[in-house]
């Protein structure tokens, strides 16, 4: 990798392998998409919880402190909405801040996976139309 982030992006966008490699790469996302569509169906049918739990003492303490200081919670929430280009208004709560933070983190770290998740949601939403 170079010291120039723009050049790294150009490289990522223009560096192609052969078709067999690329087809194998596409299959990986296809499997992920299908899997997510299945779980979305399970959730719809009540066979799976919609909650996600994490064990993390530091984050738990931060969230508790933010709830004690709502102006900071609001600042976090609004910053996350802005980063994610969400037009939502109103006072963000603890749950929304966590949800958006997870989403933003995953999108930054693994944009292809998140794009696949978006397609899976789209597939699920348009199923049966």
């Amino acid at each position: 990798m170079s010291d120039d982030p723009d050049l790294d992006q150009l490289r990522e966008a223009t560096d192609h392998g052969d078709r067999l490699d690329e087809a194998a790469g596409a299959d990986v996302y296809e499997d992920l998409r299908e899997s997510m569509v299945e779980y979305l169906e399970e959730i719809d049918e009540g066979g799976r919880q919609k909650t996600v739990s994490v064990w993390d003492g530091d984050i738990a303490a931060l969230m508790a402190a933010l709830e004690d200081h709502p102006e900071h919670l609001q600042a976090y929430g609004e910053a996350l909405r802005e980063e994610l280009d969400l037009g939502e208004t109103g006072t963000p709560d603890r749950s929304e801040v966590l949800r958006l933070a997870l989403r933003l983190g995953l999108r930054e770290a693994a944009p292809d996976d998140m794009e696949t998740a978006r397609k899976a949601k789209q597939d699920h939403a348009t199923r049966g139309l």
Partner: peptide
């Protein structure tokens, strides 16, 4: 380069 393989489609 192996990238030639997908070049035609691109």
């Amino acid at each position: 380069h192996p990238g030639l393989d997908s070049l035609d489609a691109e």
